Amino acid sequence: MHARRRRIDLPHATLSALEWRPSTESGPPVLLLHGGGADSAALSWGEVGPALADAGHRVFAPDHPGFGQSPSAAWTLTQENLVRHVGELVDALELSDYAIAGLSLGGGMTIGHLFDRPAGARTAVLLGCYGVMPRLADGPLGRVTHLASFLLLRSGLLAAMTRSYARNASAMERGLRDLVRDPRARTPELVDAVAVEAANGTGLATFGQWQRDQVQWNRLRTVYTERLPSIRTPTLFVHGTRDSGVPLARIEKASELLPDAALLTVPEAGHWVQRDRPDLVIPAMIEHLRRSDDAATARP
């Protein structure tokens, strides 16, 4: 199934978005939010979107402002701006009784949206989710690792290192090994697509704005953990056991805090979990959407 690319005009930005339409719409519409860095709607959701459409869902996957084919917004990329952006996007698409899913940065946007509009989404899926840990790393060296990352970010060295990395195909492939652990999923086509996005897009620079907003010297500015029990939306967490960015223990705790949550632990998968193991992740997402649809139908 081929995606249709469409333009979405918002008060603060113009977005480019992919849309998959089912032959028969039998489930709620789904909004998919991609991650940060050299990511885009096509890179994160190119396999997921058509599969969800085949299951009867109309699917929207926008490029965030400054990522993919979307120009930058008039404002700086902060967590608060991104959460407000999701609400404006939902309004522009005229979504009601919808499902929402987000990867990493998009997962944090999803959580923020669930707080912002608690009666909006029918159900949610959080993959490799941001916003549930106080620092960039756990463990004995977690504080040191976080401080070192802060200094690299504030000095500009991290941006310079990232630009150099983006121009080196071998380095790009090595970096993807942490995100996509299965070498069969880490195809030459995927490596090339990420390299093109990194070299030609503005996502890395845009993501740097968000990082400077979020990474303080001793902690991350946005940590949603204490507020999670207030989320009543049925939520599926999806997380790889070899995710080096977000420890599985943080996601296990988060899933326990939500009143209505399930956790799919994906063996040997990395942070880009739906690219690593689509054979497990996509069916789980479809089943979660089906259950939420059944539950909504059963309500009086």
Rank of each mutant, 00 (worst) to 15 (best):
M1D: 14
R7K: 13
I8F: 08
A17C: 11
L18I: 00
R21M: 12
P22F: 02
S23Y: 12
T24N: 11
P29F: 05
V30C: 09
L32S: 06
L33Q: 03
L33T: 02
H34L: 08
G36A: 14
G36S: 10
G37Q: 07
A41H: 07
A42Y: 10
S44L: 14
G46N: 02
D54K: 06
D54Y: 04
A55T: 01
H57F: 01
F60P: 00
P65Q: 09
Q69P: 04
S72F: 00
A74M: 13
W75P: 01
W75T: 14
N81Y: 11
D91P: 05
L95H: 08
D97I: 00
S104Y: 03
M109Q: 12
M109N: 08
G112P: 01
F115E: 07
A119M: 10
A119G: 07
A121M: 06
T123G: 10
T123Q: 09
L127N: 02
G128P: 02
C129W: 00
Y130R: 11
V132R: 00
A137N: 03
A137I: 05
P140Y: 13
L141N: 15
G142V: 07
R143P: 05
V144L: 15
L147M: 13
L151E: 14
L151W: 14
G156Q: 07
L157K: 11
L158D: 11
A159R: 07
A159Y: 02
A159Q: 09
R163I: 06
A166P: 00
G175Q: 09
L176H: 04
L176M: 15
L176C: 06
R177H: 09
R177S: 15
R177F: 05
V180A: 08
R181S: 10
R181C: 09
R181G: 00
T187Q: 08
E189T: 13
V191K: 02
V196Y: 09
E197G: 09
E197T: 08
A199W: 00
N200Q: 15
N200P: 00
G203E: 04
F207G: 08
W210K: 01
Q211H: 11
V215N: 09
V215C: 09
Q216W: 11
N218W: 14
L220G: 07
R227V: 08
L228I: 04
I231W: 03
R232D: 12
T235V: 06
F237A: 02
D243G: 03
P247L: 10
I251T: 15
E252A: 10
K253Y: 13
L257Q: 13
P259Y: 12
P267D: 13
W272G: 08
V273E: 11
V273S: 06
R275H: 14
P278W: 02
D279F: 03
D279Q: 02
L280M: 07
I282A: 08
A284I: 05
M285C: 07
I286N: 01
H288L: 04
H288N: 03
D294I: 14
D294M: 14
A296I: 13
R299A: 15
R299S: 14
R299I: 11
